[in-house]
């Protein structure tokens, strides 16, 4: 499986809503996300910044959370979404 990352913020309501969907996706499929909280961990924040060129064009030119990123292909989606949409995106990553 591709290396997938979820960047999230502890006080971000969209991230809070997506978290159980990510849990469910990991239970139902072989998909796994490395989860990195970015507002309370500067190392994680720097990691997200290092992917800025990949993330920003997909996320309103900003580093928004939640962001789901394929660290190898640099494909990214961000924001709150339906379970099926996240699942389709994650499974498509191979």
């Amino acid at each position: 499986m591709a290396k997938l990352i979820m960047f999230h913020g502890r006080e971000c309501p969209h991230c809070k809503k997506m978290m159980p969907l990510v849990d469910r996706l990991e239970q139902e499929t072989p998909v796994r996300f490395e989860r990195h909280e970015v507002w309370h961990d500067e190392k994680n924040a720097d990691l997200m910044r290092s992917y800025r060129e990949a993330i920003a064009p997909k996320c309103g030119q900003q580093l928004r959370v939640p962001t789901f990123l394929n660290a190898e292909t640099k494909d990214a989606v961000c924001g709150e979404m339906e379970f099926e949409k996240l699942k389709d995106w994650a499974l498509k990553q191979g």
């Binding site: 969209h14 309370h40 924040a45 959370v65």
Partner: peptide
């Protein structure tokens, strides 16, 4: 989150976007 960010990072930054 906004107040955590002000305490930790100096401004009332949006908790749903990362500062650059």
């Amino acid at each position: 989150g906004i107040f955590e960010n002000e305490r930790n990072h100096g401004f009332k930054f949006c908790p749903c976007r990362l500062r650059t």
